[in-house]
């Protein structure tokens, strides 16, 4: 009980303060305001989150690119900067003819068919411009895949395209990787071979060379953002 309790004054002030508001209507109004407030907050948060993601992605991309550039030496020609598989494809060999076998051949200069120019890869980001591949081809009809122009590294803008040449007994192909998309630049059959199938898709390039006695299939896929070649040689 307070010394200021005054029922008369309380009653008169109660009349002055007007009627009791409609609670249900007021609650509904409050709910609508709440929805609007939540929406405003969600927009603000999503905007902030999007900005954060952009910053993180940009920082990551910058870091990755810098790391890639530092790991790649400036090449002067003759070598391929790809990871070649070293396993035997047993599933393919079971379907091969009795006289031949299908083998996944490591892609390296040693796998180059005689008479074909040593392959070369165009390495992006290197500051040393490439000149040409190793030696001139012994077959005038076969162009040198290593002479594909190298791309100039750029400090800003989208990632520079990567071009690599993959050689096999049946021929060589040059594939470009740009913005995560593969494209076939060139396919050169070795003497006596011809191209029997050629698929050029964003995520894979598949070329088959065939002669009377041999067939070669070169597939290039994308693995961990890099080109991953699979070369199958088969005697028929």
């Amino acid at each position: 009980m307070s010394e200021f309790d005054d029922p008369d004054l309380r009653g008169q002030l109660g009349r002055l303060s007007g009627p009791f508001p409609d609670e249900n209507a007021a609650y509904a109004t409050m709910q609508r305001r709440l929805v609007r407030a939540k929406r405003r907050r969600a927009v603000a948060w999503s905007g902030g989150a999007a900005m954060s993601v952009l910053v993180v992605v940009a920082a990551y991309a910058a870091g990755t690119r810098q790391s890639d550039d530092s790991l790649r030496p400036a090449t002067t020609g003759g070598s391929i900067d790809v990871t070649a598989p070293t396993t035997v494809d047993s599933t393919t060999s079971t379907s091969s003819t009795p006289t031949g076998s299908t083998v996944l051949v490591p892609v390296s200069p040693t796998s180059v068919a005689p008479g074909v120019t040593t392959p070369s890869a165009t390495i992006p980001g290197t500051t040393t411009p490439r000149t040409t591949g190793s030696a001139a081809t012994s077959n005038p009809g076969t162009s040198n895949p290593g002479t594909s122009p190298s791309t100039n590294p750029s400090v800003t803008g989208p990632p520079a395209p990567v071009s690599s040449t993959f050689n096999s007994e049946g021929g060589s192909i040059t594939v470009r990787l740009q913005n995560g998309t593969l494209s076939l630049v060139k396919a050169d059959p070795s003497p006596g071979f011809e191209i029997t199938e050629q698929r050029d898709e964003p995520d894979r390039v598949d070329v088959r060379f065939r002669s009377d006695t041999h067939s070669t299939r070169i597939r290039v896929l994308i693995a961990d953002g890099r080109m991953s070649p699979i070369v199958e040689e088969e005697d028929s």
């Binding site: 002030l13 303060s17 007007g18 009791f20 508001p21 609670e23 007021a26 609650y27």
Partner: peptide, 20 residues
């Protein structure tokens, strides 16, 4: 809380401000 306190608080502030 809204059901228990809204009306009383609105009436008090109506008296204090002159505007419901």
């Amino acid at each position: 809380l809204f059901r228990a306190h809204y009306a009383r608080l609105v009436r008090a502030l109506t008296l204090a401000s002159g505007s419901s």
